[in-house]
Each structure stands twice: as structure tokens, then as C-alpha cells.
Design a protein around this nucleic acid. Structure first.
Lengths: 236, 236
DNA sequence: TCAATAGTGTCTTTTAGACACTATATT
DNA sequence: AATATAGTGTCTAAAAGACACTATTGA
């Protein structure tokens, strides 16, 4: 086991040994919601996986640290970054008093391939995680699901322009439930979050799909809809 | 100006000079939502007000620190305490690198009188606040309003047993909008958050009001309702 | 009995869920 | 033409909003 780190400030009091920022990077892949993890090589967590976080410096804003760590691991920055929660339990980190500021991060759909030794893992099938990162992932998933229909948080997970079936696939992967196609269309249109571009996408057989785009690409809330749509019920 | 505090950990890196936890204590008073503030005496913030926070120790969970500071200032603990957000901007604290974990705190309606040199101030009429506490208060108010109809968060703000008009007054003070009495009653009953006790309250003229209580006094979410009730529109 | 406050009933409007049907492409 | 996918229309059910009306107290 590595030595425990400690710190004392210039007034003589014990202070945190460090401060970390960790992004929970989520994306729908293969129809399921997945999270980006990196392997942990140091004891006592060798063999487990962890979120791609790192130590903050005094000159850095915590979002910047989360962004930087993310870029180091994936080669891209986050399209969306929102503070999730801070974890500061006394014994959460065996290295010492090291609180963690967690962020919910979404990266552009187009760069989902870029990886190093990082790995995408379905959030409902996690390997053993270091620290309390399993809980952090759970909190992140919950936040993403909770905001899905109330904000344009899905912006970064869809291409610039997308079809209704594409959007539906992403929403279904995130929430884990199936939606009725025609109702999904109506709900998303009425949400005020998206707008038709007038163009269509021709791919394969079948009627071409109309292309949509988000009205607002910066973080924003829906003004119209009042509740999330229902899931599809079994046919009777 | 006081000297800037710094800290270095045993591995030789700069570490935070301290970590603070600050509760945003909110309560409806005199029909308006108010926040509990304490006067700041030290430079450079002498003359301003601040949230009643304080430094954490390594052995303390951050919620405990927030609770303790609250008790020191008001004589009571929080009935409800929930992490709001962490503020760790590089220059937010002139004393040094001191991140702040903010909590949303509600205290029992019965002890709202207990004060020391602390003061209740309407959230829409704040005096100059130290640090970025004005922003912290805004974030707390937003969270409280957002959760009002979706959880039993109002538990601590109402007496053990309360009448519908009382509940309505509290909800209106928090949200800042007026509700139609009969619809308010229906919505709150159907929310599943409260239940009639069968007793009535006789006070002054008029028909006695039935007494209600919360089904669950621990933090919980409503299962039934899907959106907040409408505000009262002007008569036509 | 009157003023004051609490509570009920109900009509209308809006929103959501189910699902039959139409449209437009490829092979 | 057959098949596949996209999109429309609409019926029904449930929820919310408006508001007239009834109920029960103290003075």
C-alpha cells in the first residue's frame, strides 16, 4: 500500500491532501447507455476500473480540470459538462483526505471511437470500480435520465442534424425504455427543443426521414412539455 | 487584509488551504421565502453578510459540518439537508484556495424564532453578501422551488399537522405564485405526499379546517403527480 | 343573521397513450 | 409488386384549470 498523504496549511491546521475532479462520461452505444472507464494500476485498486479523473491545481477551475482529464484520456473535450456532486467522506480515499468533485460529461457523438486504454462499459453491467465510483456512476446516470426530457442535454449525443428515429434510439438507450414512435415524434416536436430543417435523409429502403436540429445548442431547458412520455405498453 | 493561507501536502504539491461547508437555510416567513444570514466582521468582507458556514475537519462528513455550523448559529439542526453544489473557483476566497460545499438546509418551522446575531432576509431582497454567496443562495432557492411538488421537502417547513390553507401559504411563499385553493387541495391530496388525520383545527371564525400530516417524514419523492399545479389566473 | 373561512362538485381544456392508416423510398 | 421504413390522424383516457356552489364556524 502506498503511503498516506497529508497536508497542513500555513495557519497550522490539517488541510485536504488534494482535490480531484472526475468526469462521468456517458454515451449511448450499441443501444445501451455506457460509461467511459480507465484501468487502475496502483494499489490498493490494481485490477479495478475507475472514472478518468485527476488532481486539481489551485489555478484551475474544477470544470477545466474535468475537461483536461477527459481530453487526456479520449482526445476530445466534453460537449456538455455539469457538476454532479462532491464526495468527501472521511475514508473514501486510502491515500488521504482527498475530496472529489464529480461531473456529468457528454462527448460528441462523432468522436465516440477515440479511445486509448479507456474502455466503454454498459452502466448496468459495471466491473469492480475503485473508490466509490460505482455510486458516482449511478448518480450520473440518474441525473442524465432525469434531465433528458426537460433540457436539450441530448444535443451532444446526436449529430448536428438527425432524424426522429435516430433521436428515438438515443433517448431509448439513455432511459432504457421503448417509446411509441408516433407519440415520441409528437412529444419531441412539442417540447420546443428541436425544429425541422426541411431537409431529408436518404439511406437504404423506406421513406426518407426528415432531418431535425436542436433549436438551442447551448444548455437550455424546455419550456413546453410538462412530463416525460410514456413507455410502450405491450400490445393487447 | 488578512494574510493568505497556503498548504502543501507531504508529496510536495500545493493542496487546498481548507474546505468549508455552508448551509443555505431557507424558510417561509411573513409570506416570503427568507434565508438565514450572519454578519461578517473580518476584512475584506466587514459590513457584509454571509451564509453560516465553516471549516471541515478530515474526520467529519461534510453534512455533519453543515449541521454543526447550523446548530452553532441557530441552536437547532436541519430537518432536511441536501448537497447543493461545490464552488471552487480559483479566486473566490481571498484567504486562499478554499473550496466550498454548499447545502440546502430546511429547519423546523417551530424553531424559526431561535436566532443569535443571525438574521432572516427575503431572498429577493438580499444585502451585499460575502464571497459568491449571492449565487449560492440563488442556486438553493432554485433547487427548493424545483423540488417542492415532487418531494416531501416541505415537511420541515410545516408543523407536524397542518391545514390545507397553511400548506398553501407555505407553498405560495416558496414558489412566489398564488394557487387556486380547491385545485391546490386536490393536487396535494393526489400527490400522495400527505394524508388527512381526521382531526380539525378550530381557530377564529369560519369553518374549522381539517388537519393533514405528511405520509413520510424522511426525504421521499411523490409517486403520483406529474407536474406542478397552475397558478391562479386573473378572473375574467 | 352575517361575515369569514373551509371544502365539494363539475364543466372545460389540455395532454398523453394507443393504434389504424397513409406516404415514399429500395429491390 | 413486395417490403421496409417514415409519418399522419384520431379516438380515448387522464390530468389540470376555472369557478359556482355548499358547509361550518364566531360575532
Amino acid at each position: 500500500m502506498t503511503a498516506r498523504i497529508s497536508a497542513v496549511n500555513s495557519a497550522g491546521f490539517v488541510s485536504p491532501a488534494g482535490l480531484t475532479a472526475v468526469p462521468v462520461v456517458l454515451a449511448p452505444r450499441q443501444g445501451r447507455l455506457q460509461v467511459l472507464l480507465v484501468p487502475r494500476t496502483e494499489e490498493p485498486f490494481a485490477g479495478t476500473w475507475a472514472l478518468p479523473g485527476g488532481f486539481m491545481s489551485p489555478a484551475e477551475r474544477p470544470e477545466e480540470t474535468a475537461q483536461r482529464k477527459l481530453t487526456e484520456k479520449t482526445g476530445v473535450g466534453a460537449i456538455y459538462l455539469e457538476q454532479l456532486q462532491t464526495y468527501a467522506e472521511p475514508d473514501q480515499d486510502p491515500r488521504g483526505w482527498i475530496p472529489t468533485i464529480a461531473y456529468l460529461a457528454l462527448i460528441d457523438a462523432a468522436v465516440l471511437r477515440a479511445e486509448s486504454n479507456a474502455r466503454w462499459v454498459p452502466v448496468d453491467d459495471l466491473p469492480p470500480l475503485a473508490f466509490d465510483h460505482a455510486r458516482v456512476v449511478r448518480d450520473g446516470v440518474e441525473r442524465l435520465r432525469g434531465k433528458l426530457w426537460w433540457s436539450n442535454i441530448a444535443v451532444g449525443l446526436l449529430p448536428e442534424r438527425f432524424t426522429m428515429p435516430q433521436a428515438r434510439a438515443v433517448f431509448e438507450a439513455i432511459s432504457g425504455v421503448r417509446h411509441e414512435p408516433s407519440n415520441f415524434r409528437r412529444e419531441l416536436e412539442q417540447s420546443g427543443l428541436v425544429r425541422a430543417t426541411g431537409e431529408v435523409a436518404r439511406v437504404g429502403p423506406g421513406r426518407p426521414a426528415a432531418l431535425y436540429e436542436f433549436v438551442e445548442r447551448r444548455p437550455a431547458w424546455s419550456l413546453r412539455r410538462s412530463r416525460p412520455p410514456a413507455t410502450v405498453r405491450a400490445r393487447r
